[in-house]
């Protein structure tokens, strides 16, 4: 079967730094695919290039066999995106934001209205539907952004850190919606560094480090009997230990008063 998402030689440099180094990846249709890696590994950059938000320096991306960069309109109608930084049109209300996104995608206004209400209800946002998004909490913003990504029933969902910095109740309702999506045959690609969520949800995992994929396969194979977090640390390498360093964070030093002199101060 054709993979839902396929990346070939995807590369991006920012100045001297190679953010993504010729990544090849196939995401099987209907899978719940986790992209894990340390901060700055290139996960978000990869997702941006796969969704047509960032032009790759080399390589390409295909959604259901359609070239993202050759046929942007065709591919974008099949995907939904939840970006990490949640830059939304926050002076719209939740309901207006959903209507806006639906109409942008050329949907029928009545369908948009029906689906919006249902999404708001399931995600627990009905109360807040007429509140400006700028006044939403972080978790509510994630949920309304997810609703926007889902309103056109995309076949592939790209989620960048969907569970970061949100409360367990919101995590639960988002997970329910995502499970519903994969159960219906949808594909989800999501990046995260919350390992236990990935372990619980994903049937496939790719570990990204320094712009390259260091391991990819079914979650159970990557884990190899350990916790995913341990497997992850083994794969990307542990950081420098603090043992014997940072002695100035000891109890003696922290007692010192470090207030700068204010009275009679002179600027240099």
């Amino acid at each position: 079967m054709e993979p839902a998402v396929s990346l070939r030689g995807l590369t991006k440099r920012f100045g001297e730094k190679v953010a993504v180094a010729a990544i090849d990846l196939d995401v099987p249709a209907g899978s719940f695919f986790g992209l894990v890696g340390p901060n700055g590994a290139g996960k978000s950059t990869t997702l941006k290039m796969a969704t047509g938000l960032l032009r790759p320096d080399a390589g390409g991306a295909w959604i259901d066999g359609t070239d993202v960069w050759a046929d942007p309109i065709g591919t974008k109608s099949r995907i939904g995106v939840l970006p990490e930084d949640l830059r939304l049109f926050e002076r719209l209300t939740g309901a207006e934001l959903l209507a806006y996104n639906g109409l942008l995608r050329g949907m029928d206004p009545d369908t948009v209205a029906v689906r919006s209400e249902e999404l708001l209800l399931v995600l627990g946002l009905t109360e807040a539907r007429d509140k400006l998004v700028v006044d939403y909490s972080h978790g509510m913003r994630k949920k309304v952004a997810l609703a926007c990504a889902l309103v056109h029933a995309p076949r592939v969902l790209f989620l960048d850190e969907p569970f970061e910095a949100i409360d367990p109740v919101s995590v639960r309702s988002i997970q329910d919606v995502l499970r519903r999506h994969t159960a219906g045959g949808g594909t989800i690609v999501f990046s995260s560094h919350v390992m236990d969520v990935v372990e619980r949800l994903c049937d496939m995992v790719a570990v990204v480090n320094e712009g390259s994929i260091v391991a990819v396969g079914p979650t159970s194979t990557i884990r190899a009997g350990r916790r995913l977090e341990d497997a992850f640390v083994d794969l990307v390498g542990a950081s420098v230990s603090a043992d014997g360093r940072l002695t100035w964070l000891g109890p003696d030093e922290l007692r010192h008063d470090l207030r700068p002199p204010v009275a009679g101060e002179h600027g240099s």
């Binding site: 938000l53 942007p72 309109i73 974008k76 970006p83 930084d85 830059r87 939304l88 049109f89 942008l104």
Partner: peptide, 15 residues
């Protein structure tokens, strides 16, 4: 004024 939120229009496809 769209600022970084412009991604929503980009990712929506369409013209």
């Amino acid at each position: 004024y769209d600022g970084p939120a412009i991604w929503a229009n980009v990712v929506a496809g369409g013209d």
